[in-house]
Design a protein around this nucleic acid. Structure first.
Length: 445
RNA sequence: CGGGGCGUGGCGCAGUCUGGUAGCGCACCUGUUUUGGGUACAGGGGGUCGUAGGUUCGAAUCCUGCCGCCCCGACCA
């Protein structure tokens, strides 16, 4: 992509409303524009990151055996009356009427609708287990939206629902989701710690929240510092293996890690003092097992082997995809701007032409751009006629993890400069080597 | 919803107290210059001062209503 052809409205000055780093940087780097309180437009660069996260979530869900689908944002109130949540959900649910005066709502979550789909089409235990999910816009009419995309009213969320014959199977689904979520966050370059949580209005018995540690997080968390040393890494996972999923859950949840909702000071004090941590975190996902809470009142049953109807055991699972961008930036930025992890960066590498208009550097940049594209890498070539400092500042702000600097001096020696955004370290390499290096870096992901 | 604050070109702000021709910086456009960490000079375009009403010879400025946005608290992916 040529910078001159892109739509990237970067701001030198920070809009007054932005209080936290991720919000400021998202506005300054031209990722989003506020439309009204808690509602944002996603500009091309922000949309690109959002799509990357969405793709990673899809990829990991499909890997875990879950089926993608899409449900509408507007739903009939009738289903919600059936489950009893039309009245329970309260002011947070945005309600409206169509021209016939029928009550509609903008979906804050989709347990009712998915259960309705399930009961209409599934009647035998042989069709279980089944896990369906979608990534779709949600609306929750927050009392006070804030922190930009981190607590918007409209947000992009992956929500999944499992249907199982027995509690045991449903708990395996729970474990499977925990594992797949861990993988998902790790691929994004984020550490999200599963913590025992409170179930809130979704209801249910078992629930874990995934929290990214950040000073600006809204949740108070307490944990054993040793939990931050556990990673999934490259291990081979068989999602049908109940024992393996269970073992991973136990591995990740054995140590103390809780939000303030479920915090137990006595257990916390039992941790060696030097490992006790009280901090703040951003909630980026949550998984629930809630048994027959919806299937029972809504009549979502299957015939068991004995021919008798059984209410299915369910759980639901969410990842706040749009919020993740905020969490990613909170965890990855410095005073100059964003530093995208390689797994989610909108472009793999930026190219800075130090002397735009100079035939030799222009040619070298264009050749590099083609070579990188042919290698399957996405480039953002800053071809503006700007001073180098301005180009570097823009690259730093938008946070591409790698930058190639092309100038007449280097070209005399046959090299260009490859710079890491994270470390600031540079290396002089031939254009061929640069392409190779970047290929190696991104191949691993 | 309670408490606090703000609304003046795309962004950041001054001007409001004490009414008298709407300003500054950035961004944008034109030209020249320049390009190794936010370049210099010159010229230029763009504003119903959130909105409605009131007071006044005259309102960004004073008064009233409404709308929007932000911050602190109770709720949430």
């Amino acid at each position: 992509m040529r910078f001159s052809r892109y739509f990237l409205p970067v701001l030198k000055e920070t809009p007054a409303e932005a209080q936290i780093a991720s919000h400021r940087l998202m506005l300054r780097a031209g990722l989003i524009k506020q439309s009204s309180a808690g509602i944002y437009s996603w500009l091309p660069l922000g949309f690109k990151v959002l799509r990357k996260l969405e793709n990673i979530v899809h990829d990991e869900q499909i890997r875990a055996g879950h089926l993608p689908m899409l449900m509408p944002t507007l739903q009939s109130a009738d289903l919600w009356r059936e489950s009893g949540r039309y009245d329970d959900y309260g002011e947070e649910m945005l309600r409206m009427q169509d021209r016939h005066g029928r009550d509609l709502l903008f979906t804050p979550t989709a347990e009712e609708l998915i259960t309705d789909i399930f009961r209409a089409h599934v009647s035998s235990y042989r069709d279980l287990p089944l896990t369906l999910y979608q990534i779709q816009w949600k609306f929750r009419d927050e009392i006070r939206p804030r922190f930009g995309i981190m607590r918007g009213r409209e947000f992009f969320m992956k929500d999944g629902y499992n249907f199982d014959l027995t509690k045991e199977d449903a708990l395996h689904a729970y474990n499977r989701h925990l594992v797949s979520y861990l993988r998902t966050y790790e691929r994004m370059g984020l550490q999200a710690i599963p913590m025992r949580a409170d179930s809130g209005p979704i209801g249910g018995d078992d629930t874990h929240e995934f929290l990214v540690l950040a000073e600006t997080g809204e949740s108070e968390v307490f944990y054993d510092s040793a939990v931050t040393d556990i990673t999934l890494g490259m291990r081979d996972i068989d999602y049908t293996d109940k024992a393996q999923c269970q073992a991973i859950l136990e591995e990740f949840t054995a140590l103390y890690a809780r939000t303030d909702e479920t915090h137990d000071p006595a257990l916390f004090d039992a941790i060696p003092t030097e490992r006790q941590r009280a901090a703040r975190g951003i909630e980026v996902g949550q998984i629930f097992y809630f048994g027959t809470k919806y299937s029972h009142p809504m009549g979502a049953t299957v015939q068991g082997p004995d021919g008798k109807p059984v209410a299915v055991h369910m759980g639901s699972h969410g990842i706040g995809v749009s919020r993740l961008i905020g969490a990613l930036i909170e965890a990855n930025h410095d005073e100059n701007g964003i530093i995208w992890p390689e797994g989610v960066t909108p472009f793999h590498v930026g190219i800075v032409n130090l002397k735009q208009g100079d035939a030799a550097t222009d040619t070298a940049c264009e050749a590099l751009e083609r070579a990188l594209q042919n290698a399957g890498l996405e480039t953002l070539y800053d071809d503006r006629e700007e001073r180098a400092g301005a180009k570097f500042a823009t690259m730093d702000l938008i946070g591409l993890p790698w930058r190639i600097t092309v100038g007449p001096r280097g070209l005399k020696g046959g090299v260009v400069e490859l710079t890491s955004r994270r470390t600031g370290e540079s290396e002089d390499l031939t254009p061929e080597r640069v392409v190779q290096r970047l290929q190696e870096i991104y191949l691993k992901l």
